[in-house]
Write a protein that binds this DNA or RNA. Structure first.
Lengths: 245, 245
DNA sequence: CGATCGTTTGACAAGGGTCAAAATGCGTGG
DNA sequence: CCACGCATTTTGACCCTTGTCAAACGATCG
C-alpha cells in the first residue's frame, strides 16, 4: 500500500508535517493536496517577503531552504530562523498583517499557496500548532544565543535542524542536507564565519559531525544531546505524530 | 469626565493595551471589564506556569512584572521575555497546549482571568495582534542577543521596555519603574551581572540613563535610538492606536 | 546589630572577533 | 579538458570584549 508511505516518500512535506501536528480531516487533506498542485519556483536570493510590507500571500514551502533575516545599517546580519520544506510562510491570525521580517530564498525554492483555514477547522488547528512550534524554535534560539557557547550553539542547532528535517522525511539516520555557507550559520548563531569554521573543525575532530558535499551527518547523537540537554519541541498534550501509527 | 482618562489612569492596563491594538466592540470591553474584577495576587518568585505542563488557565497581568525563563542543569538561566501589566499569559490558539516556558513572578502580581474569545470576534483579533506583537519582541530579542554588544543590548532593551510601559500609561516622559536586579537584566541580555553593572555605569556617565530607587529615566532618547536604529514594533497596517484619537 | 541581598571594584583569563592572506572548490567558457 | 574567476573555507597573528573569581561596600529587614 502506498498510502502508508506516501506522506514521507513522495507526498507534500506540508501535508506530512501538518498531519504530525494534529489529525487532519478529509477536507484539510484535500485542500492541502489541491494547493500543492499550484507550485511556483523562486531562485536563490529572491526576497519572498520584505520586512514592514503588508503580507499579501501565504505560501507553504515545498522544497528548498529559506531564512528570515534582519540587516543592520552597518551590514551586520541576523538570521532569525530557517524555513524548511513543509513550513508555512506568512500565515497569520490577524487582519492587515505587516511582515515582521524579510524572508529570502537560500536555495531554489518550490512553494505553493497555503490554503485558507476556516476558524475551528482541523486545518486551523494545524496552523495554530505550527505557529506554536515556531514559537518554540524562537525560544530555543534565544536560549542558544543568550547562554550557549559556540560549540553548544552548533550542537543544539544541528540537533534541532536534523529533527525538523526528519519530520518530513528529509533526514534519515541522522544524515541530512545542509545547503548553508559557514557565513550563514554564523549569522544565525551570533558568531563570525571564522569562528564557526574553527568550531566546526573541532567538532569534526571530536567525531561529533561529518560534513561532505552539502550533507551533514551526526555520528554521535548522544554526545551532542548530552552537551546541550537537548529536548525535542512538543507543543500539545497527548497528541502528536498522528500520521504514523 | 473620567471616561477619557480612564484607560490610561485607573483602567485596566489590559483594556488599554488591547484597545490600542484593534478597535474593541462593547462585547469585548465588557468581557474585559468583567474579568478585571476577579483579581488574584501572587507573591514574588511564585511560578505561575511550569515548562512542559499543560496550560490550564489563561490570565492577564494587571500589575507587577513577571518573566518567562529557562534554566539549564548547570544553573545558567535565560530570561526569554518580561511580562508587563496588560500582557496576556497562557493565551493560545490551539487545543491541549503545553507551556513552552516557565513563568515566574518578579514583583508581586495582580492577575485576572483572560476572557475567552470567540473566533471572529474583536477580542480574538486583539489577542491575535497581541500574539503578533509578542513575536516581534522575540525577534528583536534574537537580534539583540545575536548581533548587539553589551551597550547596544541595554539601549535597545531599555527603549523597547519604556515603550511597552508607555502603552499602558506606566511610563511618562521617558521615566518608568524598573524592578529588576542587574542579575535579571544579565540573564535576559545574555551577559553577566558584573558586565551589566559596568555597562550601566558607563551609560550613566555618558548621560544615557539615570537610575534611582527602582526608577529608570532616559535623558537622551535620540542618542539611544541612534545607537541601535530603534524602531517601535508595528503589527498591522493602518490601524493601531484606536484608543487615543 | 547581624544577616542577607544587591551593587561595585579589581585583577586576571579566555572566548571570540578582526584583519589579511592563502588554499580549496566549482561553475563557466574557451 | 584546461584555465579562469569567483565564492567559500582555512589558517595565522593579534586584540578586545566579556567572563571569572573574590572581596568590599551598601542598603534593607527582622
Amino acid at each position: 500500500m502506498t498510502i502508508l508511505k506516501a506522506p514521507l516518500a513522495g507526498g507534500s512535506p506540508l501535508l506530512t508535517r501538518l498531519s504530525r501536528l494534529t489529525r487532519l480531516d478529509d477536507m484539510a487533506v484535500e485542500a492541502l493536496q489541491t494547493a500543492a498542485r499550484d507550485v511556483r519556483r523562486s531562485p536563490p536570493r529572491r526576497e519572498l517577503i520584505s520586512e514592514g510590507e503588508p503580507i499579501r500571500e501565504r505560501y507553504a514551502l515545498l522544497a528548498g531552504w529559506a531564512c528570515r533575516q534582519r540587516i543592520l545599517s552597518d551590514g551586520r546580519r541576523q538570521i532569525l530562523s530557517f524555513l524548511l520544506p513543509g513550513d508555512l510562510i506568512g500565515v497569520c491570525q490577524h487582519s492587515n498583517p505587516l511582515a515582521a521580517t524579510t524572508i529570502i530564498a537560500i536555495s531554489e525554492l518550490v512553494t505553493c499557496p497555503a490554503p485558507v483555514a476556516d476558524p475551528g477547522s482541523a486545518l486551523a488547528e494545524a496552523y495554530a500548532r505550527s505557529a506554536a512550534l515556531e514559537e518554540r524554535y524562537m525560544l530555543a534560539h534565544i536560549t542558544r544565543l543568550g547562554r550557549f557557547d559556540a560549540r553548544e550553539r552548533l550542537a543544539d542547532w544541528l540537533l534541532e535542524t536534523q529533527q525538523r528535517l526528519a519530520t518530513t522525511g528529509l533526514s534519515v539516520a541522522d544524515q541530512f542536507p545542509l545547503p548553508l555557507t559557514q557565513e550563514m550559520l554564523a549569522d544565525a548563531l551570533g558568531l563570525t564565519s571564522v569562528h564557526v569554521n574553527r568550531t566546526l573543525q573541532a567538532m569534526r575532530r571530536d567525531g561529533l559531525l561529518i560534513l561532505r558535499q552539502g550533507m551533514a551527518f551526526l555520528p554521535d547523537r548522544d554526545q551532542l544531546e548530552k552537551l546541550v540537554e537537548y529536548k525535542p519541541a512538543r507543543v500539545s498534550a497527548g497528541g502528536e505524530n498522528y500520521a504514523t501509527p
